[in-house]
Write a protein that binds this DNA or RNA. Structure first.
Lengths: 183, 183
DNA sequence: TTCATCATGTAACACGTTACATGATTCG
DNA sequence: CGAATCATGTAACGTGTTACATGATGAA
């Protein structure tokens, strides 16, 4: 196999909560899931077909209005089993974060490079914005202790993402301070 | 375009430091660069051909031993210009980190899920190992102030990676502590 | 002389993005 | 009745991984 096809597990994980259509799944990737994983409908529809061929999901056709057909997908027992196995299995591969800014930084040889400070400023702005956005999301999605306990994993990863961005912003800040001033 | 072809810029960036063969480039991805970017020789050789067709690099053939041909690639002026432009241009896209563990965590619904604690322990071990490895690298690659100043960008990103892993380990630790004990 | 490494390439396949394509429903 | 959204699909292309394929060199 080339990679690992994580998409199939995300779909199974979402269907394990509620039956959904391909369209609903696409929306999920635009919204909550989109914070940490992306997928387009052109990837989702074929994957649904494959999962169904393999017996991990089934669908029923419902009619909306006069004749618009919706395919509502359900997870099967074997699908739920596969999902459980995936989560239970070890996750030993720490994906290298392919951060384009970090890559560019690698090629900056000296602290006197005139491109350095503007680059750091841009990233500080972008990561500060992201941090603010994530903090707002935490407040709206998990306003109460009860809501946090109800979707504990989601709560944890939002917290984690906030901490990560806070670290990033702080590192940029410290790096900017540490750069020797041009004489 | 589908993505952005960052590989071409990495190759240009490396050739901007020294002329290298495809084999040397492959080694670079196994070693220093491998910490934050991967590429196999099957991707590198065709990319070298494309960059040469576009006039960004040239090569000279050298003979090693009796008849082994090595293609030593050099960056051209237009190649150096392209590299400079890429670095100078903004980097507004913050890549979502596709961390499989985080993804699995999303599907853990409650703090009582028996899979949760073992998962966190495994990740703590993995990220602690990575942190240790990175700290060792910092010491061997940048032992002196002078060495840090000489390859400032590389030094910064190693520092950054260490801080990131330290945050990750700390977060895992705090999360483990916060999980309510089973009664 | 054999094994690890040097050295370069292609093929097949998996994954991911953008674009193409079509049609129904709902709300103003 | 027009526009936004709902709803489902395919095609083309780019990127990335694994596997296939070949041969030379250097050191034990």
């Amino acid at each position: 196999m080339a990679q690992k096809n994580k998409l199939q597990f995300i779909i199974l994980g979402l269907l394990n909560q509620h039956p959904l259509t391909g369209y609903d799944l696409t929306k999920a990737f635009d919204n909550e899931i989109g914070e940490f994983w992306q997928a387009q409908h052109s990837q989702i529809y074929p994957q649904l077909k494959r999962l169904e061929d393999q017996g991990y999901i089934t669908h029923e056709v419902t009619i909306s209005g006069a004749k618009l057909e919706k395919k509502l997908y359900h997870i099967t027992a074997t699908g739920a089993q596969l999902l459980h196995t995936w989560i239970s299995d070890g996750t030993p591969d720490l994906t290298a974060t392919k951060d384009e800014f970090i890559l560019k930084l690698y090629f900056i040889r000296t602290s006197r490079d005139p491109r350095l400070v503007p680059m750091l400023h841009e990233q500080r702005r972008l990561h500060t914005d992201k941090l603010t956005h994530l903090q707002a999301r935490l407040k709206t999605v998990f306003p109460t202790k009860a809501s946090q306990a109800e979707n504990y994993g989601h709560y944890l990863i939002l917290q984690h993402a906030i901490g990560r961005e806070a670290y990033y912003v702080n590192w940029l800040q410290q790096t900017l301070i540490a750069i020797p001033k041009a004489r």
